[in-house]
Simulated assay, not measured.
Amino acid sequence: MKKKVGFVIAGICLCWYFMNSFHILPHKKYTDEDFNIVTYKSTIDKDKDGMDDQSDILQNVRSYIATKPKYKSKYYSGGYPDDEYGVCSDVVAFGLKDAGYDLMELVDEDIKKNQKEYQIDIIDKNIDFRRVRNLKVFFDHNAKSLTTDIYDIKNWQGGDIVVFKNHIGIVSNKRNKKGIPFIIHHEHSFQFNYEEDILEKREDLVGHYRMS
């Protein structure tokens, strides 16, 4: 009997560990208002659609993940994925593109001006803007660099860009109970949710940016 109870407890623990590790368990989400944080609104509307860029980027990202893209790294002759697949950088690329920032064109222009900094021998416009290491350099050159202290919660806003060593995503306007924002991202094929509470669990954060 004791062995059976032990197996049951062990099974429950393993199940909980698995569900927690893969962010399957639901997490309560909080808003800026819950922490008396003023939501940032950009003064720029690059695509002239009547919505400020910060809000536009966040809305576009939510529209993109609503299509439930499947994780797969592929090369596209037109640069942007035109099927059901995508990778982490596509979350950012589509979020910015529909706000008036064409990363394929912008990154290509910046690489041609600063090729040594990108450490690229052969420039390929169709793929360069989808590589995290290139985006890190691009945002260093062209975006506002912000704090990487995740506990400085007022300076993390929905629509910001977050870069990890080999990964990238968009900051959500939803937060955990400490006020630390969720991240909207697409990291692997086994990801259950695109919006996850991951910042405290990662040790590879290398950049935090704002385009507008």
Rank of each mutant, 00 (worst) to 15 (best):
K125D: 08
K125W: 07
N126Y: 13
I127M: 12
D128V: 10
F129Y: 11
R130D: 09
R130L: 12
V132M: 00
V132E: 00
R133S: 13
R133P: 02
N134D: 04
N134Y: 03
L135K: 01
L135M: 03
V137H: 09
F138T: 04
F139E: 00
F139A: 00
F139M: 03
D140G: 07
H141K: 12
H141D: 06
N142Q: 14
A143Y: 02
A143H: 01
A143K: 01
K144S: 11
K144G: 03
L146S: 08
L146A: 06
L146W: 05
T148E: 07
T148H: 07
T148M: 12
T148S: 08
T148N: 12
D149S: 14
D149F: 08
D149C: 11
I150Q: 11
I150P: 10
Y151S: 13
Y151M: 13
Y151E: 14
D152C: 11
I153W: 06
I153H: 05
I153A: 07
I153F: 09
K154N: 15
K154Y: 13
K154R: 15
N155Y: 02
N155P: 00
N155L: 02
W156V: 07
W156L: 03
G159K: 04
D160E: 12
I161M: 07
I161R: 03
V162D: 09
V162T: 15
V162A: 14
V163H: 03
V163M: 11
V163A: 09
F164D: 05
K165M: 12
K165L: 14
N166F: 12
N166P: 07
N166M: 15
H167W: 01
I168Y: 04
I168R: 06
I168H: 06
I170G: 07
I170K: 04
I170Q: 05
V171W: 00
V171E: 00
N173C: 01
K174E: 15
K174T: 15
K174C: 08
R175Y: 02
R175F: 01
R175S: 02
N176R: 12
K177S: 14
K177Y: 14
K177G: 04
G179Y: 09
G179F: 10
I180G: 06
I180A: 10
I180C: 07
P181A: 03
P181Q: 05
F182E: 09
I183V: 15
I183P: 00
I183L: 05
I183R: 00
I184D: 05
H185L: 00
H185K: 02
H186W: 05
H188K: 10
S189Q: 12
S189V: 09
S189C: 06
F190Y: 14
F190P: 00
F190I: 04
Q191M: 14
Q191A: 11
Q191W: 10
Q191F: 06
F192T: 11
F192R: 08
N193Q: 14
Y194Q: 09
E195A: 11
E195Q: 14
E195W: 09
